[in-house]
């Protein structure tokens, strides 16, 4: 799937983007649009239910390096973020800490980046009070963006770095958010492009290889990128580079990243003196 294809179909058929995404799936994979919609509806429901359960909670994570960040943020709102982003970031961090404590999550697109999309959709439900059908349509559009990236490039941090995981999650979230806020297809494209460009080159450098540092907090800050990109696009700011080309560029950047920055825990913050010391302590504690 290419974004260009979706644009052509939307302009040709005058159908809404989420329906075009579902129809495209049918053409490509023979998947019944209604069945696919039901499957996605189930996943979104589970995602929102889990968000409700974990919001601002404390967690006992596997390494203990994270676990209370969502809780801390939930208690403080100095007005810097605004209600919407505050809610979204608390959800994203809590979801990510839930993941790190062997909780139940929806991989979206991966387990390591599982906080960003629920963050946005939970805030749309809680703060913007959008109905489920609108959220589902945005979720379908987000899924389409993710599929374009997965098909053209990758969503694996081990292959292309964190830009492929958190970067993809953020582009999906920004596209879904823009669509839920009645953005047209050009705005959806710009929101996804601006997000992915903002996170291009992001390396995968988990301390000790564990999905906690810097992954948990990165899920939180990525939500901010998604919201800013979406608001920019909704204001009419256009991405100069089309989405399909941004994805190609991301893939090339991933290829030129050294192995040390692709989930091997050998570079980035994973190779700092503090990370090495922490890792030594963890290994001793876990036995």
């Amino acid at each position: 799937m290419l974004f260009e294809d979706l644009k052509r179909l939307v302009n040709g058929t005058q159908l809404p983007l989420h329906e075009v995404v579902l129809s495209y799936e049918m053409l490509e994979n023979g998947e019944d649009p209604q069945t696919l919609k039901n499957d996605l509806s189930k996943l979104l429901k589970i995602m929102l239910e889990i968000s409700d359960k974990i919001y601002g909670k404390k967690f006992q994570t596997l390494t203990g390096l994270t676990g209370e960040n969502g809780f801390l943020l939930s208690k403080v709102d100095d007005g810097l973020l605004g209600e919407f982003i505050h809610c979204a970031v608390v959800t994203a961090i809590s979801m990510s800490e839930n993941n790190a404590s062997m909780g139940r999550i929806v991989a979206c697109p991966t387990a390591g980046s599982c906080g960003v999309i629920p963050g946005i959709f939970y805030a749309l439900k809680k703060i913007k009070k959008l109905d489920f059908e609108t959220l589902l349509n945005g979720f379908i559009v987000a899924g389409g963006i993710g599929e374009i990236i997965a098909a053209k490039a990758t969503i694996s941090g081990a292959v292309s770095g964190c830009q492929a995981e958190i970067g993809t999650a953020t582009a999906m979230a920004a596209a879904g958010l823009t669509y839920c806020m009645n953005g047209n297809i050009e705005m959806v494209e710009s929101a996804a492009s601006i997000s992915l460009k903002s996170l291009m080159g992001l390396v995968c450098d988990p301390v000790g290889g564990f999905v906690e540092v810097p992954c948990v907090k990165r899920n939180g800050t990525a939500v901010g990128v998604a919201v800013v990109a979406s608001q920019m696009a909704l204001a009419g700011i256009e991405s100069v580079i089309p989405f399909d080309e941004v994805v190609d560029a991301m893939k090339k950047v991933g290829k030129s990243l050294p192995e040390s920055l692709k989930e091997t825990a050998l570079g980035g913050v994973a190779s700092t003196p503090t990370a090495r010391k922490i890792l030594k302590d963890i290994i001793e504690n876990l036995g």
């Binding site: 998947e31 696919l36 991966t110 993710g146 599929e147 997965a150």
Partner: peptide, 21 residues
């Protein structure tokens, strides 16, 4: 390639390769 390769599965964290697999 399907949307369901990108959205889901519902799983126990923290890692698809180290936990789910």
């Amino acid at each position: 390639m399907s949307i369901l390769d990108v959205v889901g599965p519902v799983m126990i964290g923290p890692s698809s390769s180290h936990t789910l697999g």
